[in-house]
Write a protein that binds this DNA or RNA. Structure first.
Lengths: 259, 259
DNA sequence: CGGATATAGTTGTATATGTAACTTTGGTCC
DNA sequence: GGACCAAAGTTACATATACAACTATATCCG
């Protein structure tokens, strides 16, 4: 076997770090279906042998995959493929590209990117004048090639006049807008839906697959800058975050015996 | 300064690992407000001096904090406190019960409220011993009489021994637990699902009605206190946050007059 | 057979060390 | 003054090594 370094980094920024190669190898094996849930992943020493990396490097790769919800590790026992209903953060509003990149290779299809006349309800939500043409884009964000999120967005030309000139494959709408139209306010609404046929096809999902739909509206300089629908298959993991409160513990009652 | 090891592990399972102590120190400094956004965090070598740990250990702590969104690191430059404002939504998810009350008359049916032997996966999630009986409750929260949310919850007796004696029609599980087992940490996971027949009946919804399913796990005093499934018909509003950014203020053109 | 014990294999943490890449700063030279 | 270069300080990656903690299995002994 061994398929290390078989997927060179899509970007040309030199070879990926070793730990990353090991991660990719394991992740690919899972995504390809070679290792089903609860399958026992080669041990650290085994992967050392397979990859040629040191144990610390292999350990780091596996630890990060565990933290990201791909693996389940049991001390004294081994490493296993985790149940994929595990976490992925959607509601973390940082841009989708970073979220995906932290878990695999990011890519996207630009299905639509044009100026067009919006239906009345959109016009109303964007609080723009009637008859004004708006920018409209639709993207499929992909993780390791598989559809991950469908983004349908209307943009207010008054807030981001250059939107049509942006290469959305190099910069997500969110990334561009954050720069071009500094965010002043955001509104979110979350919903569970059964998508229509078009969305089903773009996302590559079945008819009975429920999805999370995140409605999002952003303001900039007192104007509505954009209105987006972010659709996300609901069986592939979801938002998870863990928030520590510090439980009211004293902040530093005991100084430090500094040598 | 120095407040290392000031927050002893809430659980009594021995001292926290070193890298964890360093993480906690940095996180505490941020949460306490000592280090504002863009504040420059002590360098690795500085933290080595302060903590007594090795550089690798300090490096791991900072790297994980970066991965978790607390820090921003720039090679050749330093480590800075990241801007987490855009992630506030996560915190908003906490008070769902209050959300229900704010919309109308609240009532609930207690479908189940007992001590019972939990299936293995639940036991694992609650991190309780095998063979230990746990508390189990299932409620239908109603808004103006109509089913609004289905709550299925397992409670750790070690964290809330009196749970069975609580009148859940007068006090929601969440309300009781907040008092009885002070919250130290929360984990959420969100999912879109098509509920099974039982849930459909309890919620009074149709076969093709997708729902939002919020997984929730709470910690108290170092223990997992409870694990809950909150099911919510997806055609009703679920989460709506609007978050203002202090639009008028410049984005800190002058970050930090660091001596 | 049953139980205690030793052993091998696994993951978790920690350190010491080295190299590479990047940024800022300061100085030198023209 | 301007361009170039060197040095210091920073983060990033990788390795070798060691020990600790935990699990499962095999073995020995009564």
């Amino acid at each position: 076997m061994s398929g290390f370094a078989s997927a060179p980094p899509p970007d040309a920024s030199g070879p990926a770090p070793l730990y990353r190669q090991v991660k990719d190898y394991v992740r690919r094996s899972i995504l390809a279906g070679d290792w089903p849930v609860d399958h026992r992943v080669p041990s650290e020493s085994e992967l050392v042998r397979l990859s040629g990396a040191s144990r610390m490097t292999v350990h780091r790769a596996l630890r990060e995959l565990k933290d990201e919800g791909w693996l389940r590790r049991v001390q004294g026992q081994g490493t296993f493929v985790a149940d994929r209903r595990a976490r992925l953060d959607l509601l973390e509003i940082r841009n989708i590209a970073d979220t995906i990149r932290s878990r695999g290779a990011y890519s996207c299809d630009v299905v639509l990117h044009e100026r067009s006349l919006a239906p009345p309800d959109i016009v109303e939500e964007l609080e723009s004048g009637r008859g004004v043409q708006l920018f409209h884009s639709r993207l499929v964000h992909r993780l390791d090639g598989a559809p991950f999120q469908l983004e349908d967005r209307w943009v207010n030309p008054a807030a981001a006049p250059d939107y049509l000139g942006v290469d959305l494959t190099r910069q997500t709408p969110n990334e561009y807008l954050m720069r071009a139209a500094p965010l002043s306010e955001v509104e979110h609404r979350l919903e569970a839906v059964l998508p229509g046929p078009l969305e089903q096809e773009l996302l590559g999902i079945g008819r009975r697959q429920p999805c999370l739909l995140l409605h999002r509206r952003t303001w900039s300089r007192g104007r509505v800058a954009s209105r987006a629908w972010l659709t996300h298959p609901g069986d592939r993991f979801y938002l998870a975050t863990r928030f520590a409160h510090d439980a009211g513990l004293p902040l530093s009652p005991e100084p430090e015996p500094e040598p």
